[in-house]
Design a protein around this nucleic acid. Structure first.
Length: 484
DNA sequence: AAAAAAC
């Protein structure tokens, strides 16, 4: 099966080949023929499944096949995304895929010059990618009109709802022609999303790939119990692992992300933070340096949990666990992309143990418990000594903190390991899956110590996409009440 | 409860 067989025209196939794509992913196989017919689509899929190409390619083709004069400030296709980074990424892809089809693409979101947006839209474009707030702003100022729109795409619809975009969405949809094609993508399908889809879509085809929990199966997952105050020491040790190509470290709060950056800086480890309180230039710089490899550690809030598509993220650290278990799946889905392997390591403080249980319930994978690595006590003591009691940041910094002994004693504790024995992988990872594990095994993983044996792992087959609700296993979107 | 998003 190739892209031409799905019905895509030569300029699109050529653009795909230029990117090295020859085989459609499952969501592309299922969506492209349907969308080429002009049908509405309800897609249940997360990023990393090839979703963007699945809706951009057929949309471009339909626009090319039915050429229309574009009026100033108008667009033919609108893609709405929940974060600026995602909007930017989608626009880049659209430009790429449309480069031999003469597609014009504009992107608008907050934190950037509104005059530039106005200029970009002055003659109208084929494809507009936007976040809701800035788009509404531009519409109110008459710099954008949606009156001639042909195709609407809502990406990450469940996150849009979570973020309180519902009012803005309704407002935008009210301005659109009734006669249009509507595409709706969501990683999950809670009732609120289904109702919204019922209102926005007409007789949609439904496409479902990679239910939310399957990403978790491709990632080697580990967890360590550690005091909240000693997580920094643990992270510092892990980050000395030379096998880390690029890593994302997730924190629960924006302030927490900044604090980790600062503390790592004291330990001589370069890192950037990305979160919603950073200016747009700061956000772009952080992401740019991460992508280019200049800074290989990116500390992020859940702003980066979804959609951020950076190749070569070998490790994801949950410095703090998310309290919404689905968010964990999105986070660890930043690694093991495009068939690569990946490692996720969660730091679990006492008050986070219940979150871990919820996550295990959702993913049906129990992370392998790792003991604190060798050298941890020394590292924690060193950090504590350099940090006067009562201050948890750089409030005072005496010069005794400036020189630090080289970490000679800790090399044996590096979370590396050459996969000496192949043991201690979280069960449920079937061995036969290409065998392409890079041995990126974290500290202590080789000795699960008898405990931590994954329970409830006996899922037959292990790997194929699991149908929710089909096996009566209590999956689905039902959130079970906290046990105990 | 915190996250992102318009100035």
């Amino acid at each position: 099966m190739n892209f031409a067989q799905l019905g895509l025209a030569e300029p699109l196939v050529r653009a795909l080949e230029a990117k090295g794509y020859t085989t459609p992913t499952p969501i592309q196989q299922q969506s492209i023929p349907t969308l080429l017919q002009g049908r509405d689509l309800l897609g249940i899929a997360q990023t990393g499944t090839g979703k963007t190409a699945a809706f951009v390619l057929p949309s471009i083709q339909r626009m090319v096949e039915a050429p229309k004069q574009i009026h100033p400030t108008h667009c033919r296709m609108l893609v709405l995304a929940p974060t600026r980074e995602l909007a930017s990424q989608i626009a880049d892809s659209a430009r790429d895929y449309g480069k031999f089809s003469k597609m014009s693409v504009a992107t608008v979101f907050g934190g950037t010059s509104i005059n530039k947006n106005r200029q970009d839209m002055s003659r109208g474009v084929d494809i507009l990618v936007a976040t809701p707030g800035r788009l509404l702003d531009l519409i109110e100022q008459r710099f954008v009109s949606l009156a001639m729109l042909e195709i609407l795409v809502l990406d990450e619809a469940d996150q849009m709802l979570d973020l309180g975009f519902i009012h803005a969405l309704r407002k935008i949809v009210r301005m659109l022609p009734k006669q249009r094609q509507t595409l709706f993508f969501s990683a999950t399908m809670p009732n609120a999303i289904r109702e919204l889809a019922d209102q926005f879509l007409k007789d949609p085809a439904t496409v479902k790939v990679a239910p939310v929990s399957t990403t978790a199966e491709r990632v080697e997952q580990f967890a360590t119990h550690v005091n909240q105050g000693e997580k920094q020491a643990l992270l510092t040790i892990h980050l000395r692992n030379p096998e880390i190509e690029r890593c994302l470290v997730f924190t629960r709060t924006k302030h927490g992300a900044d604090r980790v950056v600062k503390l790592l800086g004291h330990a001589g480890i370069a890192a950037n933070a990305i979160h919603g309180n950073k200016s747009q230039p700061q956000r772009e710089r952080a992401l740019g340096e991460f992508k280019s490899g200049k800074v290989k550690v990116l500390i992020a809030t859940d702003i980066a949990a979804r959609g951020i598509d950076v190749s070569g993220v070998s490790h994801v650290f949950n410095f703090e666990l998310p309290n919404v278990p689905e968010q964990y799946v999105h986070r660890i889905g930043r690694t093991a992309r495009a068939g690569a392997s990946g490692v996720a390591i969660s730091f679990v403080a006492d008050d986070e143990k219940s979150y871990l249980r919820d996550i295990e319930k959702l993913t049906r994978v129990k992370p392998t418990m790792m003991p604190l690595p060798e050298g941890f006590t020394a590292e924690a003591a060193k950090i504590k000594a350099n940090r006067p009691a009562g201050s948890d940041d750089d409030r005072r910094r005496d010069d005794s903190g400036r020189h630090r002994a080289p970490p000679k004693a800790t090399h044996s504790a590096r979370p590396t390991g050459q996969r000496a024995d192949g043991a201690a992988r979280p069960a449920g990872h079937s061995e036969g899956r290409g065998g392409d594990n890079r041995g990126a095994r974290p500290a202590g993983a080789g000795r699960p110590g008898g405990q931590g044996r994954p329970g409830g792992q006996g899922r037959p087959g292990g790997n194929g996409p699991r149908r929710q609700g089909a096996g009566g296993g209590g999956g689905g979107d039902r959130r079970s009440p906290a046990a105990g």
